[in-house]
C-alpha cells in the first residue's frame, strides 16, 4: 500500500509538469520573408562589374530571375580610402531588368582597396555592403604547356604572392576548356557525367584552398601550384586560373558548400549562407586572378 501511495504521489507531482510542457512550443518555424538579393564580384585590375538585383522567391514557387528581377533601383559603388571616406563614386544604370552596369565602363577596380555598394530599392530599406579587394599577383612560371593526361609529370605553375590584411591568402583554382564544343571528356568525367550535362563542366573549380597548404618561397615571393588531374574535365586547350578571394566570397562559398551537404552537420540541418549584404542577402565580393593556358594531351 505504501509503495502505491508513493507512486500516486509521484504521478500527481509530475502530471502538471507533463501537461504544462507538452502544451507549449515556444520555438516554432518562422514564415517566409522576402529578401533583396545582390550579386556582384569585383575583380582586381578589371572594369567595374555588372550588379544583379533581384528578390528571393518562396520555396514552393517557381524561380525565374527575370520574374524576380528588381527594376528602377538606384545603385552606386563607392571607392573608399583607408579612413572610410569616399574617394570616388561609380553610378550604375539599369541595362536590363535586374542587371545594372557602370556608367563609366573604362574605370578599373583597384587592388587592396575597399568598395561600398549602396542600392535603394523601392519599398525596401537601403541595401549596403563592403568588400576589400585582394592584392594583384601574376603567373610567372609554367613547367610545361602540353602534358599527357595522367602522366607522372603534372602541370605546375608558379605564382607571385597576393596579400590580404590580417590573414593568409585564400585560393580557388579554376580550369576552363577553351574548346567547349569539340573537347572530349577525360575518363572520370566521361564515366560520371551525362553528355547532355557537359556544359556544366566547361568551367570547373577546386573549392577553397588555404595558402597554409603550400610551401611558400618567401625569398622569391613565389608559390608553386601543382594541378591535380581531378580538376581537368576536358582534353585539349584549357585555361588554368588562380583566384585569390576576399572575406565576403570566402564566407559565402564556404557556407554555400555546407548548405549543399558534406560537412559534419546532421542531415536536415540547413544553415543560411553567410552574407555581407545589409538588409538583403547574396554576395558583394571581390577577388584577384591570374591565368595561364595549357594543352592536355589524350
Amino acid at each position: 500500500m505504501k509503495s502505491i501511495n508513493s507512486l500516486k504521489l509521484l504521478l500527481v507531482l509530475i502530471s502538471p509538469l507533463m501537461l504544462g510542457v507538452m502544451g507549449c512550443n515556444p520555438y516554432s518555424q518562422d514564415d517566409y520573408e522576402e529578401k533583396v538579393v545582390v550579386q556582384a564580384y569585383l575583380v582586381a585590375d578589371q572594369r567595374y562589374p555588372e550588379i544583379k538585383l533581384s528578390l528571393s522567391a518562396p520555396i514552393s514557387e517557381k524561380y525565374d530571375f527575370d520574374m524576380q528581377s528588381i527594376t528602377g533601383a538606384f545603385v552606386r559603388v563607392e571607392q573608399l580610402d583607408v579612413s572610410g571616406s569616399v574617394q570616388h563614386t561609380m553610378d550604375y544604370q539599369m541595362l536590363t531588368p535586374g542587371i545594372y552596369g557602370p556608367v563609366d565602363t573604362l574605370k578599373t577596380v583597384q587592388p587592396l582597396t575597399r568598395y561600398r555598394l549602396k542600392a535603394q530599392v523601392q519599398g525596401k530599406p537601403e541595401v549596403t555592403a563592403t568588400t576589400l579587394v585582394p592584392d594583384r599577383f601574376e603567373t610567372v612560371g609554367l613547367n610545361n604547356t602540353r602534358i599527357k593526361y595522367q602522366s607522372t609529370e603534372q602541370f605546375e605553375i608558379d605564382i607571385t604572392l597576393s596579400s590580404y590584411p590580417g590573414r593568409q591568402n585564400i585560393y580557388i583554382f579554376s580550369i576552363e576548356t577553351l574548346d567547349p564544343e569539340n573537347a572530349e571528356f577525360t575518363p572520370f568525367y566521361a564515366d560520371v557525367v551525362d553528355e547532355k550535362d557537359r556544359a556544366d563542366f566547361y568551367l570547373n573549380s577546386s573549392g577553397i584552398v588555404l595558402e597554409g597548404n603550400y610551401e611558400v618561397d618567401r625569398i622569391r615571393n613565389l608559390l608553386k601550384i601543382k594541378l591535380p588531374w581531378l580538376g581537368i574535365a576536358f582534353y585539349g586547350p584549357n585555361r588554368i586560373t588562380a583566384n585569390v578571394i576576399d572575406d565576403a566570397m570566402y564566407d559565402y562559398i564556404r557556407t554555400r558548400d555546407v548548405q549543399q551537404g558534406g560537412s559534419t552537420l546532421s542531415p536536415g540541418e540547413i544553415n543560411n549562407i553567410k552574407t555581407n549584404i545589409v538588409n538583403g542577402t547574396g554576395v558583394f565580393g571581390s577577388y584577384a586572378k591570374s591565368s595561364v593556358e595549357i594543352f592536355v594531351e589524350q
Partner: peptide, 30 residues
Amino acid sequence: AYTLPSGRTQLDNPFSSVPDDVLIVGKLNA
C-alpha cells in the same frame, strides 16, 4: 528537428558554369 527552407534564390558563380541554387532559411531546426 530539422530546418524547413522558406525561400530560394540563385547566384552567379564566377568559378563555375552553373549558377548556385541557394536556400533561404529562418530559424535553425524549428
